[in-house]
Each structure stands twice: as C-alpha cells, then as structure tokens.
Design a protein around this nucleic acid. Structure first.
Lengths: 304, 304
DNA sequence: ATATATTGTTAACCAAAAGGAATTAATCTT
DNA sequence: AAGATTAATTCCTTTTGGTTAACAATATAT
C-alpha cells in the first residue's frame, strides 16, 4: 500500500468529514477512498474513523494520527521544495487561489505570459472571494485584495501591489444627478457597493486635511465588482471601484472619475503563502514575476 | 509510486553506498532498487545519486534530500508508535540486537516466554558483539553488556540488570597450579580473557579496602566467552566470567569460584533504544518483561 | 593489455495491488 | 413507510512493483 497517499486521503476525509466529498475533491472514486482508509487502519493496527453509513466520527487514536499525518505530508512537500530549490529548476503544479474579479481581469492575463517563460510549471487556478484556508484547501499560494491590514495566522502575507480605488459614475448619471464635490455629497447619491469587506459601505476619502469616512447608501449591493461596474455603466449610481476594474471604461469616457481632490483609501494586494522552511520555488518565482508584471500592467496613475 | 517505500530504499542505498547491498539487505532485486531510485528521482525532479557502474556518489541535492527522508521515515514510525501506544495493543515486529553469549544463554530463553504472553509480537533477533547503530541498522532496541558507564549519543540507555562476574577455574587446574588467594597472585596464573572491552585484561577486584586493578596475562584471548569457558573446563587457566556463563558448571562442581573475599567489578546490562517522542510499546513492554524475568532467572547470588 | 568479476541499467514478463462502476446495505429525513 | 444519502462490497480493468535475463561499463587480477 502507498502509505503516504493513504495518509493524504485520510487527512482529507477527516477534514471534510466525508468519504464521498473527499473522493470528489481528490478526483478518485469513493470506493477507492474506502479501501485506502481500511488499508491504512489495517496498517497502523487501529480503527481511525468510526463510521456508520450515515455519519463519521474520528476515534481518539484517529485524531492523534491525523495530526501526525498532516505534519508528515507537510514535511514531504517541504523536502520536495528543498530539492526543487537546490535544483534551481522550478517544476510542478502551482495551485493558486485569487479574488474573483482581480483574477479574471489581471491574473488571467499574467499567467499565459508566465507560462511562456516557465513551461515546466502547470497552473491550477481557483477564483473565489470567500475565506480560504491555504493548507486545508491545498493551495500553494493565494492572492488577496484587502484593506492594508495584517492578515492573521501562520501564513506569510507579502504586499505586492497597492490598488488605487476610484469613486466613479457614468457621464449620463452625473448629467441627471449632478456631480458630488465633497464626500458629504455622497449621502445624496445612489451608491452602488461591492460588498465583500464587512464595512463595504463605509468609504474613506483623504485630502490634505486627512482621511474621513462616509457611510453611503444605495439600491445595489453585489459580491462581484463586475456586477457593480455594469450598474455604473447603466447609469444607476456612484461606485467605489478599483482602478483595474474601470480603466478601460475611463479611457473610453464611459465612466468618469470623481473627487480629483480626494484619494479613496487604497486596497492592498497580498501574496499569501504558507510559512515553511523551504518555500516552493514556483511560489517565489511567480510572486516576483507577478509583482513586476503588475508594476507594468496596473496603470496606477492612469488618471490621477 | 509508493514514495515512502522508495524513500526507504533510497536511504539504505545512501547508507550502504551500493544498490546491490541495499537490495540484498531489503530482500529485493537490485533491478527493483534501480527502478525505485529512478522513479524517486523523476518524482522529485532531480538526480539524487550520481552513478557509474562501479561507484556511487550522492549529489548535493541528494544529500539534503537524504536527511529529509530519514526524518520523514522516522516520523512515520513515530506516528505508528503513537497509535500503537494509544491503542494499548502492542503489535508488529520487535527487531532486537544483543550481545552474543548473553543472547544465546538468556535472551534466547526469555523470548519464547514473552511470545507466549504476547502472540501479536514477532521477533527479529540479531546477536553480535560489534558496534551497532540502532537507527542505521534498523533495530528497535539493543541489549548491551558493558562496564557501568554512560553510553553516548542520542539513545536512551536504561540499566536493567547488574551482572556479577566471577574469577574462576576448574578444580583440576587449581590442583595443579594452586589456588590464588590475593589479586596479586593472578600474575602467576594463566589468565584466559574474554576480549571485547578495550581493557579486558585489566581485572578489577574489590574488598573492604576498596577496588584494585590487576593486569593479567595468559595464552588465550577470545571474543566469545563460550570459547573462554571451554578453555576453563579444559583446565587451561583462570578466567573472569559472568555469572550466567558459568552457573551451570559451578553447580555441577566443574568450575570453582575463587576470591570469596573479593568481588570483581560487575558489568551492567543496558537496554538501549532510540529517544523518540513515542516509544514503540513493544519495546517498553519487552524491557519491562525482561527486567522482571532476569530478576528471577539471573541467579545473582547463587554462589556468594 | 587482456580477461574476469562486479555493479547498475534495461527489457520482457508476471503477479499483485489499486482504481472504477455498479450494486448492496444501512440509516437519516420527511 | 418511502426516499435519499452515504459507505461497503463485488467484480472487472488497469497499473504498478517485482523478477529474471541479457547488457554495458568499470574496476581488479593476471
């Protein structure tokens, strides 16, 4: 039996508390999962998971063994990273997680260029805006846009770009509703918010007197900034969107940037990766590449 | 591929610096070893061993990976020990190394009794008097008789018995050569030495005035105490032998114990095992058993 | 220098194990 | 009680790991 792969299966089963979910995630059949767990139990000489057809519970022994398995799998990866590092030839699959819209608009463009340069690296890209546990979900790294605050946990978060935000609206909307000139004026406008951060409708604007935060209201909240952008383009209201979301439309004069005297609080792009002794060279390499790529392709000053 | 077993093979190949020796030791063909190493190299994406048909050298990458593999294999065993421990059901093979004569005379008797009691434990016994590296040679534990001095290294050495030594000779020898009564008298006798410890011909005897050490000479040195005993039985001279080596013959009056006023320096029996977080219950169990067994079966006072 | 022995690699082949699909069994929900 | 969900089991196919034998390369002995 391949003990190591069985350990991997076991860990996923315990994580997901389900044979079938683990099977789906690992891309194998549930019968295979069942067999592997049985074999592993036979191998260690103890029942690891108490299972009825309907529910699983990890035994005391199983819980202790689970911890060990996690560590061992981690160490095996570490060893392979070490080799890869000493070897100087990055290889293998880079499993990357990224925010939805940023991924669609920027990461999606950067990856083919990177792959051109490093043909021995494969990509496995997952875009979503939910909470991610890198280790649990098996990602090598994540790209996350958040307020520039320090993320938690044992992960390393490296800020690789600062994302300018812009309060904006369509010319047509402004023609009808007027152009807000002070932050206070926003209270009288329909503010379309991209709702991910907990306080997405608190917009912070800074001028030479320092920052101020305005609570805004409107008739659309969406968890996807393209939905918000679409509403802006349909003249529905004012939004606070990232430069990369609107740049094309600003250049085409379909969207106007407001508040030239103020600067909305920027967001930060963090590259997040596990803190391991030997980082996979793939990860380091891609982060470097992407940082440089963004410096060229993220037109930070396109309308300041 | 079974990465873990390939790691095991790799470690042995590096240890022994030979594919064929590793194959022999692991009980598989050398072609299998060759394949596994190749697969492992392919898996990690680097050459681990630089090989001509005649000589091996571990690459820089291979050396680093070797360390990792050792640790991983160790940790996997540790995890299984942990399970076994929590489980309370000792299982599996106990690989034990022991001194030659002690093993033949005492360990050999104890093992069947132990197996009677714990039928789920198998034994793999190796007797020799050479230097042993538990980890390298894959033993779970060793039993070693030495002067009561602290052994080195990262191993745990637990003294489980004190072995009385006796200066002895056959009645026939004594009739011809006389009976030595002071340690100094030994200089005039043919002293047969069991030659393992570096200073085997320095015999230390203690009386109420404290210990004194005598350098003895004779015409036989052997690295096996049964050879020495045989010489004693053939009236060749005086020897310093462990109680368990001569007891049968003392009881049968074929060997006489000398120096009732003195006590030769005792040796200690150490149980030696790796210092791991989770000791295999097999090991602990057997040590306990054997200590108790020796207390009954090692007739420490049979002729004092 | 030539022959010989040793050692790792490769190829062909075989047995055993792993993996998948479909069926069965168990139990939770309604 | 019926239906739905989930793990176990069975049967079948594919893959892997292993062996033997022939081969290539390189020390050592003569």
């Amino acid at each position: 039996m391949d003990v190591l792969s069985a350990m991997g299966v076991y860990v996923r089963v315990v994580d997901l508390k389900s044979f079938s979910l683990a099977a789906a995630e690992l891309g194998i059949s549930s019968s295979s999962v069942s067999k592997q767990i049985s074999h592993l139990e036979q191998h260690v000489g103890a029942r690891l998971i108490q299972r009825t057809t309907r529910r699983l519970s990890v035994t005391e022994v199983g819980a202790a063994y689970y911890e060990k398995c996690q560590q061992i799998i981690f160490d095996v990866e570490d060893a392979e990273n070490l080799v890869s590092q000493l070897q100087g030839k990055p290889r293998g699959v880079l499993r990357i997680n990224c925010n939805m819209t940023f991924g669609q608009l920027l990461l999606a463009k950067a990856i083919p260029e990177f792959m051109e340069q490093y043909p021995d690296i494969q990509f496995d890209v997952t875009l979503d805006d939910g909470e991610v546990d890198l280790i649990r979900d098996g990602f090598d790294m994540a790209l996350r846009i958040t307020n520039p605050q320090l993320p938690d946990s044992s992960l390393i978060a490296r800020e690789i770009a600062s994302i300018p935000m812009f309060i904006c609206a369509s010319p047509e909307y402004l023609a009808v509703h007027g152009c807000p000139s002070t932050p206070e004026d926003l209270k009288d406008h329909n503010c379309l918010v991209f709702m991910l951060a907990s306080n997405a409708n608190a917009w912070t604007l800074a001028d030479e007197n320092g920052p101020q935060t305005i609570l805004v209201n409107g008739d659309l909240k969406a968890n996807n900034s393209l939905v918000v952008r679409q509403a802006v383009l349909a003249h529905r209201g004012v939004a606070n969107l990232a430069s990369f979301v609107i740049e094309r439309f600003v250049e085409a004069d379909q969207i106007k940037v407001l508040f030239s005297g103020y600067e909305p609080e920027r967001l930060s792009l963090f590259a997040i990766y596990p803190d391991r002794k030997y980082m996979s060279p793939k990860v380091g390499l891609f982060i470097e590449f992407f940082r440089d790529w963004l410096e060229i392709n993220l037109q930070q000053e396109f309308l300041l």
